[in-house]
Design a protein around this nucleic acid. Structure first.
Lengths: 249, 249
DNA sequence: ATATTTGTTGCAAATAATTGCAAAATGAAA
DNA sequence: TTTCATTTTGCAATTATTTGCAACAAATAT
């Protein structure tokens, strides 16, 4: 039995019983409790269930739809998420966009950090349900029922009223000459305003997106303060970015 | 039995009976009274109930968690929901508040009706995921993690920019002289603005709430256009309301 | 005022989570 | 296939949480 299969069974069991007990399920799956515990931890990180002492229960809030979070845990996103954490200090106001990379960062936030998170993404907001010290300011607007985030005039106007300490910009293409670009028009508009109004912007990218471009302009490359990729900044040659005044991690 | 499960049961019991007694529930759950006491303390800290000597009672109106609301479909809500449908015509702009009654109405909407729904409630928005012809305008603001709805300055300002055809006002107390009142301050503020800016307001109430009052003023009784209750309008004497120009259903 | 019930606090036993580690399994490259 | 590196898994020691109990305090009832 492989790990993914086991985790599917845990979720299945959860659907039926509304709860999973470590000792029971470990016997069913014929693995140690430690292993199940680790599985539950992983699933919990993805937001697919809620780990509690002795097992797991269903996540309360928002419907199944968001379970596209499957993709969150792609290893490189975890790496990126951890690098970002160094920049997040208690008391900050974070502006978080609606991509899965930003979601990965948010789901890796420590449980007890005090922050204000501003976002237009239902998944981001709902994952913060149990972070008691995080205040969530949700940005309204027209609801996109696929990404479960808001867009449009209202959203942009609302963001203009925010001056965040840190903006987490989900993956987009970055080119020194062509600037930061995105594949979706509405989303790019919003990202643009987010960058404009934030004191500091961290782009969450992958190294293969560097030097590429997409259809919709977001901002100049040097509007970014920091670019975080999954790669070791020493191993790839990114000196051109550093020369442009962008910190690379 | 897991702690989380136990606490869920306490809340469930509370929903049915309006109260929980330490000695009773501790026998049902097969734990000591001390443990239940501690559970109630925790739930009380989260604002999910009110601890009293000997047990716990429901916290005035609000926050029943989304999770719990979904499963408990009190029949009268269904009756009310169906009565409301007669007033909802294609093309309308609906302003929907964050109460459970309004949620019940929304979940009874036909799949293919074309509407614009404006709401500050996550559950309302997410229930409309599959209604392809319903546009959802979500009202931003500070997120209340218990009711999963937004409140505060931003929310109120955003509502001021809407002029809905129909406002669905969740259950609150209604008295001809004292007006419409609510038990939660923030929630009442929002309801007030909703009524002010809408062309027509339907109050979703239960007959026992008529003639009662709560702490926070929302609007004058005759600001309501229609009151819908679970009861047959002929069976109860509501002529005073009709005389005041309010339609009763 | 006294008796009875309920709450509080501190404590110890039981239970669960975390961490570090080594063995086993898996996968990729030679 | 074999080898090497990585991941996964189980185990043990440590740490943390939960729970029931008992002694005492506070509130309520008689």
């Amino acid at each position: 039995m492989i790990k993914a299969e086991r985790q599917d069974l845990i979720l299945e069991h959860l659907l039926k019983d509304k709860k999973v007990l470590l000792d029971q399920i470990s016997k069913v799956l014929k693995v140690s409790e430690d292993t199940v515990r680790r599985d539950i931890k992983e699933l919990s990180d993805k937001g697919l269930l809620k780990a509690v002492r002795g097992g797991a229960i269903q996540r309360s809030s928002i419907p199944v739809h968001f379970k596209d979070r499957q993709h969150i845990d792609v290893p490189y996103k975890k790496i990126i998420a951890e690098k970002v954490l160094e920049y997040i200090k208690p008391g900050m106001v974070l502006l978080v966009d609606s991509g899965t990379s930003a979601l990965a960062v948010v789901s890796n936030l420590p449980k007890d950090i005090a922050l204000t998170v501003v976002t237009n993404s239902f998944p981001v907001a709902s994952i913060l349900e149990d972070h008691e010290k995080i205040e969530v300011l949700f940005i309204g607007g027209m609801l996109n029922k696929v990404s479960f985030s808001t867009t449009g005039y209202e959203t942009i106007q609302a963001i203009r009223n925010i001056r965040a300490d840190l903006c987490l910009l989900g993956i987009c293409s970055i080119d020194l000459n062509l600037g930061v670009t995105g594949a979706e028009y509405e989303d790019s508009l919003i990202k643009r305003v987010m960058v404009e109004t934030s004191k500091c912007t961290i782009a969450l990218s992958t190294s293969d997106k560097l030097g590429t471009s997409d259809s919709f302009y977001i901002c100049a490359a040097n509007s970014l303060n920091i670019i975080i990729t999954e790669a070791d900044p020493k191993s790839v040659n990114l000196s051109a970015y550093v020369d442009a005044g962008i910190e690379i991690r």
